[in-house]
Computed example of a mutant assay.
Amino acid sequence: MNIPPFHGKTDLEAYLEWEKKIEHIFECHNYSERKKVQIAALEFTHYAINWWNQLTVNRRRNGERPVSTWDEMKAIMRKRFVPTHYHRELLRKLQNLTQGSMSVEDYFKEMELAMIRANIEEDQETTIARFVSGLNPEIADTVELQYYVDLEEVVHLAIKVEKQLKRKEKEEEDDTIKEEVNENVDFPADGEVLVVKRSLNTQVVQSDQQRENIFHTRCHINGKVCFVIIDGGDQASSHSVSIGSYKDEVICDVVPMHATHMLLGKPWQFDRKVMHDGYRNRYSFTYDGKKHTLAPLSPQQVHDGQVHLKKSFEEFKEKE
């Protein structure tokens, strides 16, 4: 059997892995303790061989006997290559270990390896409790309701629950994709935008909350194209509105500003059970058995529309 080399790098995991492999090889052979030390030292390279040679010379100079057993050699090497806080770090890692983004199988392996390295000895019920408490809640809640007798059984049960949840998520995702494919997207109306004379003597207030992600679109009202903002608000009046194939009677605010003609607020969103997709900035709802998804104007279209609306309003005032 080939003895793995040890380079002496400050890599804690590499040292412990080397130590474990060496001990497995020693278990297969009836080596004397002196022979074990010699065989292990033969595979030292780079920094490790220089460190070991210097240690041997220093012991000889100080009148100390040579290292003669594997346990003694291992203790010296651990003192040099394993930090004193290592065991505390292992315990802390084990106590804080949770599944997170890992699969159930990877989480269990991580927990098992941490217990081995920390030399944790506990009864099976305690280990089961440790494992289940670290599972993601949606898996742990189901596992705790099931019957199991040992650690292996609860691990297999958790893996089974995980697969069921992933299958359910995949089915729900497929249903969402099908729904998006079948949805009817209603785009803003085209045409010359209506100029509205302001009947209220209210000044337009600039607000930090009026950002570009506010939903802007255009609609038809009595054959005229109007700007629309979908936002919170109180009802003021009822209007017949059409955006694409969506035609409805809505309660809304007609606001005294250049920014828009109409504000669709909470009453409309409540009555139509409207869902807002914040990522795509689209509003979806079902009306007369047909699903509608309202697509917004781009920021550039909003800007151009407001500039044009202001210019039209100023021309209207001059004529008036």
Rank of each mutant, 00 (worst) to 15 (best):
N2R: 09
P5R: 02
T10W: 00
K20D: 14
F26E: 04
E27M: 11
Y31W: 14
S32G: 01
A40N: 03
L42K: 15
L42R: 10
E43H: 13
A48Y: 04
W52D: 09
T56D: 06
R65S: 03
R65F: 03
D71L: 11
E72N: 10
A75G: 11
R80Y: 07
R80N: 01
F81S: 02
H85I: 12
H87P: 00
H87Y: 08
E89I: 08
K93R: 02
L94G: 08
Q99T: 12
E105S: 14
K109L: 13
E110W: 03
M111F: 06
I116N: 04
I116Y: 00
N119D: 12
Q124F: 06
E125L: 06
E125P: 14
E125M: 14
T127D: 05
N136L: 10
E138W: 10
A140V: 05
D141C: 11
V143G: 03
E144K: 15
Q146S: 14
Y148H: 14
E153G: 13
V155S: 07
A158M: 03
V161P: 05
E162G: 14
K163V: 08
L165C: 04
R167W: 06
K168C: 02
K170M: 12
K170G: 09
E171I: 03
E173I: 11
D175Q: 09
T176D: 10
T176M: 08
I177F: 12
E179I: 02
E180S: 15
V181K: 05
N182R: 10
E183L: 03
A189M: 01
E192R: 09
V195W: 04
V196S: 08
V204Q: 03
S207R: 01
Q210C: 02
N213S: 10
R218E: 01
C219L: 05
N222Q: 08
I229E: 11
G232F: 14
D234H: 06
S238L: 15
H239D: 01
S240I: 11
S242A: 13
G244R: 00
D248K: 11
I251M: 10
P256A: 11
M257D: 02
H258T: 11
P267F: 06
P267W: 07
Q269D: 01
D271G: 00
R272N: 05
V274P: 07
H276W: 04
D277M: 15
G278R: 07
R282E: 15
Y283H: 15
G289V: 11
H292P: 02
T293E: 06
P296F: 09
S298Q: 00
V302E: 05
V302P: 00
D304R: 13
G305Y: 07
H308R: 00
E314W: 01
